[in-house]
Design a protein around this nucleic acid. Structure first.
Length: 834
DNA sequence: TCGGGGGGCGCG
DNA sequence: AAAGCGCGCCCCCCGA
């Protein structure tokens, strides 16, 4: 009897399991044995098919398809896919039915993928659902559920307004990703011609390579605003379509805003759309459910793109269109837009159901992630203010530094070594090129190679340069430092500074696997601590910048999780744990006798023996010790790195390298091993906690932070002790700490926003364990005091039923970032100024 | 001409 | 055997 579907796949190592699984999938999808024919493709001679095998293979496949006379062909796995099409790339092709000669081909992953990782099951299920759709439709299905309306008359506006109730999804198409008007946008808008350099920079920032687009079309514009309701999708042509006037558009937006108040609003990466609506229309659309963040909290390891998710979970087709279709108004664009909202709305039901299965994860989503959408929409909208005068000064200074260093370095660009520049006839070396530099140092100058990179090239990193005895090293390091600051933070910021001098860094709530946020355009979280750069970020007129950070928060959380007696005791009694580590380490080796006894003597002019002096140092803490002797400043910094390194699984070999690079201390292997042992002797419960985490991850394939957030670590379940598994185990230790530290910070930011109106207090951004906040001048004292209270015990902790043994402490500074002072000093300065 | 990888380095 | 974690961005370089 003739079968409808031909399934091609290949022989693999877990064939029994795979076959069982396939049978199960096929049955669940509603097929019986008469529906399909299962055929194995010939195995490649080696691991993969060779180039010469391909024509033979495709001929074989074509013949099989011909003899079976099936209209539908399923190719499972890359080999089967290659057999049919001659092409590689199953990852991109899977789940999308295509016409192949006389038949319809549906590529899928091999069932083995699920045998290897059961988490992939939904992908295959969705693909079989897709196969069903294809059979039912009798070809490649159009989206029959899709029913979109172009809202281009007042009649349709009214229809739409009536339909906007219950669960509504929304989405925007925009001309580019960055919504704010920059200096160059303003020039274009006003018809001022850009210089070539300006145009290049502008395109590099906004164009993503598409050189053909006119500058006009790159201005920040909303192309369309769309909604999906139960049965229809409503596409409102917006700023560039020329269908509605500005005034009419604003009128429509206003009426929609009113209706949305009573809707359950769903978005995918809603912060993006909310920000655009705020910037372009001044309205505040709050979402109740973000499908991207829902999927992020459900699987932090996966991608979170809308199309990807719709294909993976809903068996949707690939509705992607070329880039230029998305950035200008057209019917194609409207159809694309309709897909976006349609599937966003569908995904919300799917993910809401998934979230219900894990109430702990759901809580993080509801209480932290969703509130952050609104919080960070506002923060990004406001942005951070850049001191324009100081910015110019810093730029001039850095250019001078780079020029000086370059002049110094160019002495070494001898004609017989360096490439000769054709234009100037002078030998040049690009000091930013590791390759050219390596040639100069290790070939021409015949310096011995110190270290190699993982690809085998001689390394030119700072740590290597410091070990090279050559007079150009100093200039080289100066050049790098100045060049880095200039390119990353001066030139790097320029394209993003808006007309009023603000930067609007974009925070990705889904940016990391641990639950931290990432930040880009520009990245506020990597601004150097060097005051020259950091203090460029400051408060605008009438406001003050307050930076409040959680003190040693990761260490505190580790102490809590490990129930580490000595650490908890130190935190309770106010001893600085980095200091404790440092002093005990010194004591162990009976080192720095002179400094220890001398500093103790300077403190109160009393003579002490070594061990009494040690105890005194421990008591007075690093700050006072540093005042008595500069030496202790370095000591504490060193111990900080030791704490974090050992805490999260650093091995003694790395510690040895660390000590050498950062402190110029050359220790022996034995000393390094001894140091590690001593650390774990001092904090005896840490290894037990490490073991607990490793075991749990190995058993369950995930760990949770105190808030309940999951970090999925499938590699931890590997049967064998592989490097991958080791990595997962270290993450099992680090993740809950990093994750919860960040959550405490976010809980505080959320609460601060709830307690103060925007007219008084605004969040400017977060940096992992710190909040950057703008407060009205008149409110500074109050906010300063309150934020410290909030951070040391945010109300959401109670909501999460978390009761910490370890005390949480915060500290705050007022003033330009990185150059602020405490409240006392600030008040004094205010008084003097008045 | 682009996209991606590598090297290097800024932050927590 | 091999052993801190998490990011983004700059520049160079090379292959498609």
């Amino acid at each position: 009897m003739k079968k409808r579907v031909l399934i091609l796949w290949d022989e693999t190592q877990y064939m029994v399991k795979a076959e069982k699984l396939l049978h199960q999938l096929v049955t669940e999808a509603g097929f019986d044995d008469d529906d399909y024919e299962l055929v194995k493709v010939p195995m490649p001679k080696g691991k993969k098919y060779g180039k010469r095998e391909i024509p033979q293979l495709t001929a074989w496949a074509a013949e099989r398809i011909e003899t079976h006379k099936c209209k539908y062909v399923v190719a499972m796995g890359s080999n089967a896919y290659q057999a049919v099409t001659g092409q590689t790339g199953i990852k991109k092709a899977r789940g999308k039915p295509v016409e192949h000669g006389k038949c319809i081909l549906l590529p899928m992953y091999h069932p083995n993928m699920v045998v290897h990782d059961p988490g992939n099951l939904p992908i295959l299920e969705a693909d079989f659902q897709c196969l069903n759709n294809v059979l039912e439709f009798g070809g490649i299905p159009e989206e029959r559920d899709l029913d979109f309306v172009i809202v281009d008359t007042w009649g349709k506006v009214n229809q739409m307004l009536r339909a906007l109730r219950g669960c509504v999804s929304s989405d925007l198409e925009t001309s580019r990703l960055y919504p704010f008007t920059t200096v160059l946008d303003d020039k274009i808008e006003r018809g001022i011609k850009l210089t070539q350099a300006e145009e290049d920079q502008y395109r590099a920032t906004h164009c993503e390579g598409k050189k053909s687009r006119s500058l006009q079309s790159l201005l920040p514009r909303v192309i369309s605003i769309q909604f999906a309701t139960a049965f229809k999708q409503w596409i409102i042509p917006a700023e560039t379509a020329g269908i509605w006037s500005r005034r009419e558009l604003e009128q429509i937006v206003e009426q929609v805003t009113e209706k949305l108040e009573d809707c359950y609003l769903v978005g995918h990466n809603w912060k993006f759309d909310a920000l655009w609506m705020r910037v372009r229309f001044g309205v505040d659309w709050k979402a109740d459910f973000d499908t991207m963040l829902a999927h992020y909290i459900l699987d932090e390891n996966d991608n979170h793109g809308l199309k990807y998710l719709a294909q993976k979970f809903l068996g949707a087709p690939d509705w992607d269109v070329a880039g230029d279709v998305k950035t200008s108004w057209s019917m194609k664009n409207a159809k694309y837009a309709a897909h976006d909202v349609y599937y966003t709305r569908k995904l919300r039901y799917y993910f809401a159901k998934q979230l219900k299965c894990d109430s702990e994860v759901k809580k993080v989503f509801d209480e932290i992630l969703m509130p952050c959408v609104h919080l960070f929409t506002e923060a990004e909208f406001d942005g951070v203010y850049v001191d324009q005068a100081k910015f110019g000064e810093a730029e001039a200074y850095l250019r001078e530094e780079v020029a000086k260093a370059t002049a110094e370095l160019d002495k070494w660009a001898h004609p017989e070594w360096a490439e000769v520049d054709k234009a100037t006839g002078k030998p040049t070396i690009n000091w930013g090129s590791p390759k050219q530099l390596a040639r100069l140092l290790f070939e021409d100058l015949e310096i011995e190679v110190v270290e190699r990179t993982k690809t085998g090239a001689p390394s030119c990193s700072e740590s290597v340069l410091l070990r090279i005895d050559h007079e150009m090293v100093g200039a080289l390091l100066k050049w790098r430092a100045a060049q880095k600051q200039l390119s990353s933070f001066i030139e790097g910021w320029k394209p993003y500074i808006d007309l009023k001098g603000y930067l609007h860094p974009s925070f990705k709530l889904h940016g990391t696997v641990t639950g931290r946020l990432s930040c880009e355009h520009p990245n506020l979280q990597q601004v150097p601590r060097d005051k020259r750069i950091r203090s460029l970020i400051t408060a605008p007129e009438g406001w003050e910048l307050i930076e409040a950070d959680l003190s040693q928060i990761e260490l505190r959380i580790a102490a809590e999780l490990a129930d580490e007696t000595a650490m908890l005791e130190a935190f309770r009694s106010g001893v600085d744990v980095h200091w404790l580590t440092a002093i005990r380490e010194i004591e162990r080796g009976a080192g720095y006798k002179d400094e220890v006894i001398d500093t103790a003597y300077r403190y109160d002019q009393k003579k002490r023996n070594y061990s009494d002096a040690i105890e005194l140092l421990l008591k007075i803490g690093p700050d006072i010790a540093a005042e008595l002797n500069e030496f202790w400043k370095e000591t504490r910094k060193k111990a900080k790195a030791i704490n974090f390194g050992y805490l999260f699984g650093m091995w003694w070999k790395k510690f040895k390298i660390y000590a050498r690079d950062n402190y110029g201390v050359h220790i022996t292997d034995e000393q390094a091993q001894e140091s590690r042992k001593a650390f774990f002797a001092l904090y005896g419960k840490l290894p037990k906690w490490h073991d607990r985490q490793r075991r749990f991850a190995r058993m369950n394939g995930y760990v949770r932070s105190l808030s309940g957030r999951k970090r999925r670590l499938p590699e931890a379940m590997n049967g064998r002790d592989t490097p991958d598994r080791r990595e997962a185990e270290r993450q099992a230790i680090n993740s809950p700490v990093q994750s919860f530290a960040n959550e405490l910070n976010l809980m505080s930011a959320i609460q601060l926003r709830r307690e103060y109106p925007r007219a008084q207090v605004r969040l400017a951004g977060t940096v992992h364990d710190a909040c950057l906040v703008y407060a009205r001048k008149a409110k500074v004292s109050e906010v300063y005091t309150r934020i410290l209270q909030i951070m040391s015990s945010p109300a959401l902790l109670t909501e999460f039923e978390i009761d910490l043994k370890v005390p949480i402490e915060a500290e705050a500074k007022i003033g330009p970032w990185g150059a602020g002072v405490n409240l006392e000093k600030w008040l004094k300065a205010q008084k003097e100024a008045a």
